[in-house]
Nucleic acid binder design. Structure first.
Lengths: 166, 166
DNA sequence: GCTGAAATCGCCTAACG
DNA sequence: CGTTAGGCGATTTCAGC
């Protein structure tokens, strides 16, 4: 599974599947301008090479009863690698934490969390997150409303750069 | 398209499609324990009712040359609704900004950004974001590494709550 | 190597019970 | 919701560039 360079058709496939991950292979093939068999082979190759990590339905948290979304900025008291990894592992074990990113600067981690209601989140915050070993500070901000939620990467920016360097 | 309540099969469908959005309908039907036609009808209904907002391939930004991911915390000088909306619209027009969420507290917005390299991001930051009308302050943090990136909502938490309230 | 064409197999998706 | 059934898509095979 070598990460050989992508050609324009591969990039178009990725852009299309990022936009609509459930598109049929023949429709995808039609859009990228090749026939179905090579298109399917390319998709499999892209999956195996790791360009495509998976396919996910994008569900509406609020409709499903997750009314609360929160960003939590976490500072640790020790940044030793073992302690960082321990905290990351803890985040992976918490279902309410959907994303966890390690950052530079004063904040060590940013967490995106969801919860059915505020009291559920508060009890997670005080009982689990703030109480976890090595956690020095937690600042939380409720999401008032979402303004943009685009998946993955901007392929138009990518194409623009590639044509500039050509 | 009424948002009638979901039964356990609907929730299982959502959980499965969140996990693997490209699963075939017959495989999905098998997993949720019904035959294919009613399964497909349920999926269509869930899509039309807005429970499923779309399907997206999850692509790897780094492999595609987007080496830099940044969270930007933005404060505005005016929080009048028209000014908030204007800033949101601006974010939607910037391809490097993948997510924009309006928050409570001192920070008004949090933005998740990607860029091919640091200099591209810096030029966006100084030339576009900080320079935008009404932007009072921008604090940025580079993502050192991602520790968790789970899609959507935790259906196990949902089921647990539902069984508790039963 | 790559693609495309043909053929098979399996899935999707009506219509009906 | 299940079953049937026809049409279409997916996937292998094979030939050609």
């Amino acid at each position: 599974m070598p990460s050989t360079k992508l050609d324009p058709i591969d990039r178009k496939i990725l852009a299309e599947l990022q936009e609509d991950g459930r598109m049929t292979n023949v429709e995808l093939a039609r859009r990228v301008g090749i026939s179905a068999p090579p298109c399917l082979r390319r998709v499999r190759t892209l999956e195996e090479a790791g360009y495509i990590r998976g396919y996910h339905a994008d569900v509406d948290p609020r409709l499903l009863g997750f009314e609360v979304q929160v960003f939590a900025m976490v500072g640790l008291s020790s940044q030793a690698e073992a302690d960082l990894v321990a905290f990351e592992e803890l985040c992976r074990s918490w279902p309410l934490v959907r994303e966890c990113h390690m950052l530079n600067g004063e904040i060590d981690f940013i967490l995106k969390c969801v919860a059915p209601d505020l009291s559920t989140f508060q009890s997670f915050l005080t009982g689990q997150l703030t109480a976890a070993p090595n956690v020095a500070s937690v600042r939380t901000s409720l999401v008032i409303r979402g303004a943009k939620d685009a998946p993955g990467v901007p392929f138009d920016v990518m194409e623009e750069r590639l044509s500039r360097s050509a």
